[in-house]
Computed example of a mutant assay.
Amino acid sequence: MLTLAACGTDGDATEQTPPAPSASETSAVPTSAGPSMDPDEAAAADAAMAVYRDVTRLAQDARRDPTQDWLLPYAQLTADPYRSAELLEISALRDRGIAHTGEVAHDPQVVAVDLAGGTDGTLRTVKIQDCVDTQDFPATDQATGDVVSAERPPHVAVATVVFYPPPEDRWLVATVDVQDETC
């Protein structure tokens, strides 16, 4: 049922991929800000990672209590298509009387920074690859207390965090692509 309990959508969601940046526009780093990054790339990586970490906490909180209205918190940190997919998933949990307990373990790393954007409408992006472990975050039927989620080994998720110009003027998580790959 839930393939990425804390930071993504189910496996049916598709990621809208911007055009691939050139090698000079992209930097791969193992952490949010590495020594090989210039100051602008490091600042972008740090800002995007902060938003991503906030989104992973938000997703856990929303799944623990899907009866609350989560639209405003998601609007502050996310963009479509991720926002809509998340809100639909939370609504489905609420409608089925299911909530999660426990914690999701994450190990996110910035893998690419593209600050070039483009005249074709592409925006500045940061890609974050995360190892997501949902084994200690079971879904439970609230009426019966029965655990209803299937075990899933830790898996890879790739988030695209995009800088939206004014009026937004901030980094937002736009997609989270859940991979079949384990980690």
Rank of each mutant, 00 (worst) to 15 (best):
Val126Ser: 01
Arg63Cys: 01
Thr160Pro: 00
Gly102Cys: 12
Gln68Lys: 13
Met49Ala: 09
Asp130Ile: 04
Glu41Thr: 08
Arg94Glu: 15
Thr56Ala: 07
Ala105Gly: 04
Ser27His: 06
Val158Tyr: 09
Thr9Tyr: 01
Ile128Gln: 05
Val156Trp: 09
Trp171Pro: 01
Ile128Asp: 03
Thr182Glu: 15
Pro19Leu: 09
Asp80Ser: 12
Glu151Gly: 06
Glu25Pro: 00
Asp61Cys: 00
Leu71Met: 06
Leu58Ser: 05
Thr122Lys: 07
Tyr74Trp: 11
Pro165His: 09
Leu77Val: 10
Val51Thr: 12
Val161Gly: 11
Ala62Glu: 09
Glu151Trp: 09
Val161Lys: 06
Ala42Cys: 09
Arg53Trp: 04
Met37Asn: 08
Val126Ala: 03
Pro73Asp: 13
Leu123Thr: 03
Asp69Tyr: 06
Asp177Lys: 00
Glu103Met: 02
Pro30Thr: 09
Gln76Lys: 10
Arg152Gln: 15
Val110Phe: 03
Ala150Ile: 03
Ser24Gln: 10
Lys127Thr: 14
His100Asn: 14
Thr78His: 09
Thr9Ala: 11
Thr78Pro: 06
Phe163Trp: 09
Ala112Leu: 01
Ala79Pro: 04
Cys183Pro: 01
Gln142Asp: 13
Ala23Ser: 14
Asp12Gln: 10
Arg152Ala: 14
Thr26Ile: 02
Thr119Gln: 11
Glu25Ala: 11
Glu15Val: 08
Thr31Leu: 12
Gly117Ser: 08
Leu172Glu: 06
Ala116Gln: 11
Thr119Cys: 04
Val161Thr: 13
Cys183Lys: 02
Thr101Gly: 14
Val161Cys: 13
Ala157Asn: 05
Ala92Lys: 15
Val110Gln: 00
Thr140Val: 15
Phe137Gln: 03
Arg64Ile: 04
Leu71Ile: 06
Val162Asp: 07
Val178Thr: 13
Gln129Met: 09
Val132Phe: 05
Glu25Met: 01
Val113Trp: 02
Asp114His: 00
Pro165Leu: 04
Glu168Leu: 08
Ser27Arg: 08
Ala28Leu: 04
Gln129Arg: 10
Gly8Met: 05
Ser84Phe: 07
Val104Asn: 02
Arg57Asp: 13
Ala159Cys: 05
Glu181Asn: 03
Asp133Ile: 09
Phe163Glu: 06
Ala59Arg: 00
Val132Cys: 07
Arg96Glu: 15
Gly97Ile: 04
Asp169His: 08
Gln76Met: 13
Pro154Gln: 11
Pro21Leu: 01
Leu72Asn: 11
Val161Leu: 15
Asp180Asn: 08
Asp177Phe: 02
Asp46Glu: 12
Ala50Trp: 03
Val148Cys: 04
Tyr82Pro: 02
Ser32Asp: 15
Asp80Asn: 14
Trp70His: 10
Gln16His: 03
Leu2Ala: 07
His155Pro: 05
Ala47Trp: 03
His106Val: 02
Ala105His: 10
Ala23Asp: 15
Asp133Met: 12
Val111Ala: 01
Pro81Asp: 15
Ser84Asp: 14
Asp107Cys: 00
Gly97Ala: 10
Ala33Cys: 15
Leu58Phe: 08
Val156Arg: 12
Gln129Ala: 10
Ala75Glu: 15
Gln129Cys: 00
Asp136His: 10
Arg64Tyr: 07
Ser36Ala: 10
Ala33Pro: 05
Ala62Gly: 06
Ala159Tyr: 06
Gly11Gln: 13
His106Asn: 13
Arg94Val: 02
Leu88Asp: 15
Leu71Val: 12
Val113Ala: 00
Thr160Arg: 12
Pro66Ile: 11
